[in-house]
Simulated assay, not measured.
Amino acid sequence: MTTEPYNVLFLCTGNSARSIIAEAIMNREGAGKFKAFSAGSKPGAAPHPYTLDLLRGLNHDTGFARSKSWDEFAGPDAPKMDFVFTVCDNAAAEECPFWPGQPMTAHWGVPDPVKAEGPEAARRFAFSDTYRMLRSRISIFVSLPIGSLDRMALQRNLDDIGKTPAKAD
């Protein structure tokens, strides 16, 4: 059993909303057992303002939040990733770089809140709903007995978490 935290990378295309939200949640919910990072295949200039507003409103430190390329995590000096999760709808179809150390991977896609339309309240709700969906999945993940699961059982669990309904009934 490792005493070091597990490194978790959340990937999305723009690294402006979903992956940053997931990073914030994991760093809080993981309680020192996990260290989260986020990146994008085509990162935007900065996190979406609604992402930052939401996280601040939920008492998350946003000092970490910046849009960055997944290239930062693919080099030899990058932290070794134990888990890599794609969180956007189209990321599973994108070609991902090679991840040293063969991390466990899964697709936990959720709708892009940045693409929400309508009045401001509806658009902000989309960000809150994204937070809710990701927090639900991450809470399930951090409660797994990772040290006692073999690789195949762990992969099944990771895949099942990604199938957790994205929308509330």
Rank of each mutant, 00 (worst) to 15 (best):
A126W: 02
A22Y: 10
A24E: 00
I21M: 09
P47V: 09
M81K: 09
E94P: 01
S139I: 04
R135T: 10
C12F: 06
A36Q: 04
R124E: 11
F34Q: 07
S69I: 06
S143I: 00
D169W: 14
R137T: 00
P5M: 00
F83T: 10
N27G: 04
D169C: 09
L55Q: 04
L11F: 03
M1E: 12
G109M: 01
L158E: 07
M104W: 10
T86C: 03
V142M: 07
F10P: 03
A126Q: 00
G40I: 02
L134M: 07
A46S: 15
E94S: 15
E4T: 12
A22P: 00
R28H: 05
R66Y: 14
G118C: 08
D53L: 13
E4V: 07
K33P: 00
K163A: 13
V8Q: 00
T2C: 09
K35Q: 15
G57H: 06
F37R: 06
K167D: 04
A93G: 12
P43N: 00
T13V: 14
P97L: 09
L134R: 05
F125P: 05
N59K: 11
R132D: 11
D53Q: 15
N59Y: 08
P119M: 11
A78L: 03
Y50E: 13
L55I: 07
F125A: 15
A92C: 10
M81T: 00
T62A: 00
D129T: 07
F73Y: 12
P165R: 01
P43I: 05
A168S: 14
L144C: 01
C12I: 08
L144R: 01
R151M: 02
C88D: 14
P79F: 00
T51D: 09
P119S: 10
G44Y: 09
G162Y: 12
D77K: 10
R137Q: 00
F85K: 00
S69K: 08
I161G: 07
A78E: 05
R28D: 07
G32F: 04
L55E: 07
D71N: 12
R137M: 11
V142R: 05
D159E: 13
Y50R: 15
A116T: 04
D129H: 13
S69A: 08
W99A: 10
C96E: 14
Q102V: 08
I140V: 13
L52H: 11
P97A: 10
E120M: 13
G30L: 04
C96F: 15
S41V: 10
P43D: 06
L134Q: 08
D112V: 08
L144S: 08
F85Q: 07
S128F: 14
D61Y: 11
A46R: 15
L134P: 08
M26A: 03
P97K: 07
